[in-house]
């Protein structure tokens, strides 16, 4: 898109993997260092920006669009921590309608409202439900809406599969002007093998891991207070992890077209890792047995 205002970043990841937490903390860290940031939640659950704005209610773009013929920016946005402009695309109730088309309609509405021209952001972060279930959820990485896409994953195989699916979507759209892949954010790291598993996946798919976020009680606690770690515990190690991620995204603009694994490759890869993990787990059991 020509004349794009700010850097547009899409962050994908399997549902429940912690991408809204990660995205919100990156937004908070960017805002903290003086940038103007917009975070757009592209998930029918519409809880992407909750921890940036103290857990208050925010009408979604689609709900407002449904109820009013004329929508104003102030009806569908809230200023959160550090001045981050928070927007939720919203969607239908589960089991009805088409959430994918909803994302499309919401993004078009934001463009019609000239949100970017008005707010003049340095960064726009799209937090997208990442299973790439249909074309609608690929909207932020199609048509060059976002420049770069990042994927949040844990070492859980289903999360890796979702990441691999996103790679497929990037590979499909990037040659015609869609977003490229900025890298993988390894989240919720706890198991001893987690880091090497995600590293290996990134390596095999021609991608890279841009940060490792350990599993942390601080995050859960902050969320219960409706805050990001950056806001709630700014001096914690965890806050620094998110700041490092934000700095990386700000400074390193490399992006690639990844090489997603095909079905059999992915299965074989997962099986090999499954065997290795089993050995590790068996080892743990053995040690405990000796206590």
């Amino acid at each position: 898109m020509s004349g794009k205002i700010g850097k547009h970043i899409a962050i994908y990841g399997k549902g429940g993997i912690g991408k809204s937490t990660t995205t919100s903390n990156i937004s908070a860290a960017l805002a903290e260092s003086g940038y103007r940031v917009i975070q757009i939640g592209c998930d029918p659950k519409s809880d992407s920006t909750t921890i940036l704005r103290g857990g208050n209610d925010l009408p979604t773009v689609l709900d407002t669009l449904r109820e009013q013929s004329k929508v104003r920016i102030e009806d569908i946005s809230a200023i959160g921590f550090g001045g981050v402009l928070c927007i939720e695309a919203g969607g239908p109730v589960p089991g009805v309608g088409c959430a994918g088309r909803g994302i499309n309609a919401a993004v078009e509405q934001l463009q019609d409202l000239k949100v970017f021209e008005e707010f003049k952001p340095d960064f726009v972060l799209y937090d997208v439900l990442g299973d790439v279930v249909c074309g609608g959820f690929a909207v932020p990485i199609r048509d060059g809406l976002a420049d770069r896409a990042f994927v949040v994953t844990s070492s859980d195989f289903m999360a890796i599969f979702a990441a691999n699916n996103l790679f497929k979507a990037v590979t499909k759209y990037a040659p015609s002007g869609g977003a490229r892949l900025g890298g993988v954010i390894a989240n919720s790291l706890q198991a001893p093998y987690a880091k090497s598993l995600i590293d290996d996946f990134a390596d095999r798919t021609g991608s890279r891991v841009i940060g490792y976020v350990p599993r942390s009680l601080t995050v859960a606690q902050s969320e219960l207070y409706g805050k990001t770690v950056i806001e709630a515990v700014p001096h914690s190690d965890q806050a620094q992890v998110y700041r490092d991620l934000a700095t990386f995204i700000d400074r390193d603009e490399d992006a690639v077209i990844p090489r997603p694994l095909n079905g059999p490759e992915l299965k074989k890869w997962a099986r090999e890792w499954g065997d290795r993990i089993f050995e590790v787990e068996a080892g743990v059991v053995h040690e405990m047995g000796s206590i």
């Binding site: 689609l62 449904r66 969607g91 239908p92 309608g97 088309r101 909803g102 309609a105």
Partner: peptide, 10 residues
Amino acid sequence: REKHVVFGGG
């Protein structure tokens, strides 16, 4: 219309 696609047309 679009809203019926997004939210269902039932």
